[in-house]
Design a protein around this nucleic acid. Structure first.
Length: 484
DNA sequence: GTAGGGTTAG
């Protein structure tokens, strides 16, 4: 069109930006931006929104922001573009902050705003705010739109309330495959593989919905997190043979997870090496993590090297490898790994846990002493540990990756961010109120045991969302069945 | 012509 001498108008550019956003071609998008200026279309709010979207989808947050800031009139679509841009770039806090500003400036959110904000609440696992958004949606009659229901299912599930997720699901009987997949994923997230499969079967047998690749992804994920190895492998075959879907890298990652968690490390590795696409760092990390569960140093070393070939700056693989060695008490290998971390200036992502109380978020880093009540928290924990020991708790010093004597290891364990968070939650929350803690990384083995004891001693329901799933502690038992 | 839902590992 350009070569033939046609000039673009606002409609042309809107489409071009939209295409560039989808294709991630920021270079072409920038050229089209030049045309926009040249043809004096900078004041058009539709073109500006699509331009901002193009930048934000391509990771250029600042460029997107400045486009939206320079709009003479900020529209609702512009706000939504901004919010979803932050959401997709992994800045859920910013989404919530801008959402507040949006409302203060007098804009009325619509269902698209709600969906975006709800996904940020899911990421942060802040149920209180999620519920509030739910209520706002109810008020304007937007809560029963299927896309909203999917978001609500996901939000409630990721915030630890499987019941509320199921409630949102059951209130809408629609045959919408995304909504059903959301519910399958919710079951998987909570280690309820059997229920996930049951829902899938109902979907196939009693409805007309199309099953797609994502549905299978959710299903496989549910199986591997529930220890349903054979069922998962069977579903993978069904997907390929009966449905004719070509498995993606993510599907293979689920299979490697299924095999690896079940201890079939050789098979898992063979799958990676024989699959038709190039492995990424994640699939090797899946294997490496399985190696640390099953204490297989040889396979771990190979996976570790593969990861570094793909992403030399990855820090988590060092920690995982050190884990494998530490569990076998090979301290020389552990310090070897630590040394290479130092040499290459690789830093571990610090563990952080938090919980929400009366609209405030309380954060704890490992070994945190920055709270005004730190002293009280540590002495509370000390007392709690004594009570736990009376009931039979033995600190799992194997969870400590350093070669120290047991006493030092114990004091190391006490400083874990999830323990600090649970202690403070016990101190400030009224009796009987369930405690919901979120941690950025996986829960450590010792903390997992400790939380079981705490749930008995304090007669408290504790929910812990870690980096990949939920743990419900009730009466000394965890919903994950110690399989994670 | 613009914005939104379910998606693997640590």
């Amino acid at each position: 069109m350009h070569k033939l001498g046609f000039s673009p108008d606002e409609y042309t550019l809107g489409s071009v930006f939209s295409g560039c956003a989808g294709l991630r071609s920021v270079f072409i998008g920038q050229q089209a931006h030049g045309y926009m200026v040249k043809y004096g279309l900078e004041l058009d709010s539709v073109v500006s929104s699509s331009l901002a979207h193009m930048y934000m989808r391509n990771g250029k947050l600042r460029d997107g922001q400045s486009v939206i800031r320079s709009m003479p009139v900020r529209t609702l679509v512009a706000w939504n573009t901004l919010l979803s841009g932050y959401a997709q770039e992994g800045c859920p806090e910013t989404v919530l902050c801008e959402y507040k500003k949006m409302k203060i400036s007098g804009y009325r959110p619509d269902q698209i705003t709600f969906v975006t904000v709800l996904s940020s609440c899911s990421d942060l696992a802040i149920r209180g705010q999620g519920q509030q958004v739910h209520a706002e949606a109810v008020k304007i009659g937007a809560s029963s739109v299927v896309a909203m229901v999917s978001s609500l299912i996901s939000m409630y599930s990721k915030c630890g309330c499987l019941e509320d997720a199921a409630k949102a699901f059951s209130e809408r009987g629609d045959e919408d495959e995304v909504m059903w997949s959301s519910m399958i994923s919710a079951y998987g997230f909570h280690g309820r593989g059997e229920e996930a499969i049951k829902l899938f079967n109902t979907m196939v047998e009693e409805t007309e919905m199309e099953i797609n690749e994502v549905t299978f992804l959710n299903l496989l994920y549910a199986c591997s997190h529930s220890g349903l190895r054979d069922k998962g492998l069977e579903l993978f075959d069904t997907m390929v043979e009966k449905y004719g879907f070509r498995p993606s890298l993510r599907h293979y990652t689920c299979v490697v997870d299924l095999l690896g968690r079940a201890g079939d490390l050789d098979q898992a590795e063979a799958r990676i090496r024989s699959m038709p696409m190039k492995p990424d760092a994640v699939i090797w990390k899946t294997l490496l993590s399985a190696c640390s569960v099953h204490k297989n140093a040889e396979t771990a070393q190979r996976a570790f090297e593969e990861i570094l070939k793909i992403d030399p700056n990855d820090s988590s693989c060092y920690v995982l490898l050190a884990n494998v060695h530490a569990s076998a008490k090979r301290w020389r290998d552990v310090s070897e790994v630590r040394k290479s971390m130092r040499d290459r200036d690789v830093k571990k992502e610090p563990g952080v846990s938090w919980f929400e109380h009366k609209g405030e978020v309380y954060r704890f880093k490992m070994g945190d002493r920055s709270q005004s009540q730190s002293k009280e928290i540590y002495s509370y924990l000390k007392e709690l540990t004594l009570e736990m020991k009376v009931k039979g708790y033995k600190p799992d010093t194997a969870s400590v990756l350093h070669d120290m004597d047991d006493e030092e290891k114990e004091s190391d364990l006490v400083q874990h961010s999830e323990k600090l968070a649970v202690a403070y939650a016990l101190m400030v929350l009224p009796e009987g109120v369930p405690i919901r803690i979120i941690k950025n990384l996986r829960v450590c083995g010792d903390c997992h045991v400790a939380f079981k004891y705490i749930s008995v001693i304090k007669n408290r329901e504790i929910t812990l969302r870690d980096g990949s799933r939920f743990h419900h502690f009730v009466n000394g038992k965890c919903s994950c069945g110690d399989y994670w």
